[in-house]
């Protein structure tokens, strides 16, 4: 059921949502060298989705974001395991990461680290699990 009383909320959210999601992506990448990372970024993204849920209802949000959060958790787990188990192929201890620097024309030197992939897994798992929990409670009203 969608009530029409929350025009202010709905309008604000349309703007705020993108700011939050963008900021969560920033936080996610900042986690490389500064405070931040997959967990906090994931929580923030799920916070944004929860805001959507508050403004609209579950069905509408499901049409806006047709994501199966459980599958998302699975993909995240696979990312995390894959990155850590990749070290087995190179015969170094489990979870050992690799990193390097590359020169990109406009942006200058960028450091690449396989830990980012791991963190991406964490991010997906956090969003997936949080949203699964919230949906489970929210679904049967």
């Amino acid at each position: 059921m969608r009530s029409n009383n929350n025009i202010i909320l709905e309008t604000t959210i349309k703007v705020v949502l993108f700011i939050i999601v963008l900021f969560s992506v920033y936080i996610f990448f900042a986690g490389h060298y500064y405070p931040g990372g997959g967990f906090i970024g994931g929580l923030m993204t799920s916070g944004a989705i929860v805001l959507l849920l508050i403004a609209y209802d579950i069905k509408t949000v499901a049409t806006i974001l047709p994501v199966n959060y459980r599958t998302m958790t699975g993909i995240g787990l696979l990312f995390a395991i894959g990155t850590s188990a990749g070290s087995l192929l190179f015969n170094v201890p489990f979870l050992t990461h690799a990193f390097g620097h590359i020169e990109v024309p406009v942006l200058g030197e960028i450091s690449l680290h396989t830990a980012t992939l791991f963190d991406l897994g964490v991010y997906l798992v956090v969003v997936g699990v949080t949203m699964t929990i919230i949906q489970t409670i929210g679904e049967d009203e």
Binding site: R70, T73, G74, L77, L78, I81, V92, P93
Partner: peptide
């Protein structure tokens, strides 16, 4: 250093993650 130790933990873990897709 011996990655053999991790296998009894890793195999069920991978299995669990994959099985989520086939529930």
């Amino acid at each position: 250093m011996n990655n053999l130790i991790i296998l009894p933990i890793l195999i069920p873990f991978v299995t669990a993650a994959i099985l989520i897709f086939f529930h």
